[in-house]
Design a binder for these strands. Structure first.
Lengths: 159, 159
DNA sequence: CCGTAGGTTCAGAACTTATTGAACGTTCGA
DNA sequence: TCGAACGTTCAATAAGTTCTGAACCTACGG
């Protein structure tokens, strides 16, 4: 196996972690690389070269990163196309997005329907789970606000 | 396509939702079924019959559910083996488990190493993400405690 | 108006993962 | 001790997903 630079290896490791969430390797590699590359913006060509991916894979993977709100396009001065960079607030956007929790809450609600409604016997588990997800859904935005307040006090910058 | 009972359909839907998190279909079906079945405990044989899965799939899938803390074995009085049921506090256990966040925080920490440490230029994104995950890791247990307090006030039971 | 760099799409190859089903233990009742 | 029910494991197969590469757009510079 060929020698990998620390940075390249980091991209691979990120792919493993993200892969654990069911995401495609290319997606994780791209994100990992964009987190540590210098400069922080990279063109498709650069990404393909750095990560040993085809143009097609970079195109598909970056679109996924864009639509999931983790990366964005930035114009490059003396350059034909665009470059990509991770959004400074990427993780927060993801965390604040309550969609994930809503889906689960709705699954529990549907479960209650299936078993015969709120008051049917043996629905305690379902009700608790539904309430739990509803709780998290409600609280998460506030938690994120608190982080922003705390963090803003320490370091005030933006990308 | 054959007619599916509401309950069976629910199991399929659960599989889709869980699948979105990268989990195998069989796992989602089993969990979905166990959430709504009556009685709430089911033997391997029952699960296989209800969901149209092989004994092998049930065995593998249930072990996954067990090790991830969502289901547990319960003895069955006049029966050779054991049955399974979802743990009453399944979701809370999952949510309270900070492992998921730790993995991400560690990825960000490694990223900082790779780019040359805390004080290297252009590390703002990485530092913020690391701090964010550390924050969530710290706060999540407290959030769960708050839910338990709130919920305990409304409905006091256990399975 | 053409040539070229950059970007996207998509069919098929390569690969990965889930599921089955058969073989193998184990435990219990008789 | 035997037979039967039950559960587990694992090799092979089926199913599904990702990645590539070539064809195809588009926009800009000259």
């Amino acid at each position: 196996m060929s020698e990998l630079s620390d940075q390249r290896r980091y991209a691979e490791d990120a792919a493993v972690v993200l892969g654990g969430l069911g995401l495609p390797p290319a997606y994780g590699k791209l994100l990992g690389w964009l987190l540590i590359c210098d400069p922080p913006w990279q063109t498709s060509t650069q990404l393909a070269a750095a990560l040993g991916l085809s143009k097609g894979s970079v195109s598909t993977g970056m679109r996924l990163l864009e639509t999931s709100g983790l990366a964005r396009r930035v114009p490059v001065p003396g350059h034909r196309g665009h470059a990509y960079e991770v959004r400074p607030d990427a993780v927060i956007r993801i965390a604040a997005d309550a969609t994930k929790f809503r889906v689960f809450r709705e699954l529990m609600e549907r479960g209650l329907d299936v078993v015969g409604g709120e008051d049917a016997p043996g629905t305690e588990r379902l009700r608790m789970m539904r309430d739990f997800y509803a709780f998290i859904e409600r609280e998460m935005p506030q938690l994120v606000e608190r982080f922003e307040a705390e963090y803003g006090a320490k370091g005030d910058r933006d990308g």
